[in-house]
Amino acid sequence: MLGYALGHGLSNPRTTQLIASSLTFVVFGFTPILFPAEQLPGWLAALNWWFPFRHMAVIVRDALAPQLVANAPISYLMVGIWGLVGTGLSAWALGRRR
């Protein structure tokens, strides 16, 4: 839903492309998905807690290797909230375009 919101919420395709490419880069290198959060500086790990990417990794890991995961329900909740935010933004953008 976030991708959908991004696609509909921004009018300039170049801006959308730019944000999408930057997100790929940021998600790959600066979110604790492929490595533990402890390897990030404290402030970046704290910041990541508020974004959905880390929580997406947690819930997938919870399904595959639950022994590695603590507090999975909170991650489900965070991903759910971001999904709702994306849905709300998409609905707003689509309504505005009518």
Binding site: F25, F28, G29, F30, L34, F35, Q39
Partner: peptide
Amino acid sequence: VIQLLMGAGMAIMYGFFYP
């Protein structure tokens, strides 16, 4: 600006992959 951010970003991020 993107080139500069990506250049600096890559130098920083690969350090996160190693304990």
